[in-house]
Design a protein around this nucleic acid. Structure first.
Lengths: 347, 347
DNA sequence: CTGTTAGCGCCTTCAG
DNA sequence: CTGAAGGCGCTAACAG
């Protein structure tokens, strides 16, 4: 069962020519006799020859593999982004190896090392919620390997990235709640380690300010995205002397978990409490009542991230982001209004 | 920006020993002086040396990479299986490269070739709904590369596989509908190309037979899993002279799409029509009313598939499945009863 | 246009 | 216990 794979040497032998000529014919080198090339290609076809990308990588010091590193793949968000990215990468002749880490910082560091050891040509990353130390990403850059962030980025690091306008999206989401007459708007935010969390929270605060609604610190809680804990926080909100009449959450799973608790308390959505999520997961459309949420252009985020990466890979002059500002793409979001804030038939 | 990667040669030079000794020290070869080994490991650690798996693969003719080929990653089913598989693979020192193909047969064939060209050590597959020709998988086997199917398998090919008992699961699901008093049970089945489809359909038929309910051909439709078409078929069912009082679908997305149509027609679930899906996607729990469905042990399916594959990889004698029967694992399912068949509080 | 040579990083004989 | 030599599959000069 040895090496069933056929190599250029096999082709060369059968054709009584040198392996270099075979190599040249195969790669489309101009200086090869047309007839020779024809014979090589014909035999390659017949024998179903496929060149070994590992050997190629070893010889040329590039692998045509891109690493994609995401915190999870169970919601629809990251898979969609991945699909978008792969679309662009495939077109350019690259392949992706996907790593996920269950939001574990340690796994993220290990995966980074793994991708590096495979000599990937570039890495696309959305870091975990635990990630506070970015040394492993900095090392990638120092080694001159193109790196692109998406969704979750970092202030500390100057890395090309593609994000949505979290601030504005949150601002508009909260403004929507204000417009339907809510005044006691609670915000279940994510961990401060995530830049999105901070931006969305700022959008929340500024929307209140603009409409001269005083901020009640009791109505803002940061949590670590562990869904089991949502119950505690929502109960806390509902138990306040002046409970909220609206809730804006960091993401859709949180909103959906919250809705369950609210319903169990016998309160009605949206009459007693209107709810707004973030990301427009598939489930936002499926729950009942449908969840008002901020839609992100997930596929496009993936495509843009891949484009940014390829740009770096193909640039002849290495972009040194320790001196030059890294490019950033900011995509538009869209507020999807469903029955968790506005009754069907109502305004 | 040349080869920032350090190699055993670098280590050898710094230590004034030969690269062979370094190699032996690193791989844990017994005949290396403890002191030499210590020095090598120390320096490797200090320089953050990582051995190049490509070169290793080239030299040893194995890559420690496993290909996982699935039709889609947007539902929760395949991602869960993948996570389960990776768990086992990682433990054994293997890494996975994940390919998905949007249920496209052509993409599947291309991905197969791709994985093969990367000299993966094994492949785990759930084929597309379009796949009727299995030559590309047969080629994998002929080349002696371990292959494992899961979920969707094939009669024609003798491949180790892990599945659930689709027949029995469907049988029990339909029996559940009968037990709550339904007699006109419709079945929206999948394409005949999928073996699961056929098994589930048989389970449906046999459950009816057991309870002496005549089969009405008008109540069984096979469709190609294109969700947009669900509307048409459900409308057809509802427009029958004797419309059904229950519906059993090939999977959860189908059931959920059907529920939407039923509701729009002003019918009540489960009073007018009870609905049962298959797989227990995350969304089955989220829709309202909650969807009764068959839960599959997704993580365990992944783990089992990986175990089966590793078993083949590690077997010293190559298992020739053209003569020997391939092992098959069949896992248990569980019927999850929710409000789409039984009212809350009711029996 | 083509063959020869060297080398990518690693492992594995074969000699000491 | 260690070093030298050869090879995995491929590309890239260097000569013709």
């Amino acid at each position: 069962m040895k090496s069933r794979y056929i190599s250029i040497i096999d082709l060369a032998k059968q054709l009584h020519i040198s392996k270099s000529t075979v190599s040249r014919a195969l790669t489309g080198h101009p200086s090869v006799h047309p007839e020779t090339r024809r014979r090589v290609l014909e035999l390659a076809q017949k024998l179903d020859y496929q060149r070994n990308p590992l050997a190629l990588g070893l010889a040329r010091n590039n692998t045509n593999i891109i690493g994609i590193l995401v915190p999870e793949i169970m919601s629809t968000y990251f898979p969609s982004v991945i699909i978008g990215a792969q679309e662009v990468l495939h077109e350019a002749g690259y392949h992706a190896i996907i790593c996920h880490n269950n939001e574990s910082y340690n796994a993220e560091v290990l995966n980074t090392r793994l991708l590096l050891s495979y000599h990937v040509d570039g890495i696309i990353v959305s870091h975990t919620k635990e990630t506070r130390n970015f040394d492993h990403f900095q090392m990638i850059q120092r080694r001159g390997i193109p790196l692109v962030f998406f969704n979750r980025t970092s202030d500390e690091l100057n890395v090309p990235h593609v994000v949505v306008d979290d601030y504005e999206a949150a601002f508009r989401a909260v403004e929507h709640l204000i417009k339907i007459g809510r005044r006691r708007i609670a915000h279940l935010a994510g961990p401060d380690s995530l830049i999105n969390t901070r931006l969305r929270q700022q959008g929340y605060l500024d929307a209140l300010k603009k409409h001269k609604i005083p901020v009640d610190p009791d109505l803002v809680i940061s949590y670590d995205l562990t869904l089991e804990k949502v119950r505690i926080y929502i109960k806390h909100f509902l138990g306040l002397p002046q409970p909220p009449d609206a809730l804006f959450t960091i993401n859709d799973p949180t909103a959906i978990a919250a809705m369950e608790v609210i319903r169990q308390k016998g309160l009605s959505i949206p009459d007693d409490i209107a709810v707004v999520g973030f990301s427009n997961d598939l489930s936002a459309r499926l729950v009942s009542p449908g969840l008002t949420t901020v839609a992100q252009p997930t596929f496009e985020i993936g495509r843009e991230a891949a484009r940014l990466l390829l740009q770096d890979i193909n640039s002849t002059v290495k972009n040194d982001y320790s001196v030059k500002k890294a490019p950033a793409v900011m995509l538009k979001t869209k507020l999807i209004i469903r029955e968790s804030t506005v009754q069907k038939g109502g305004k």
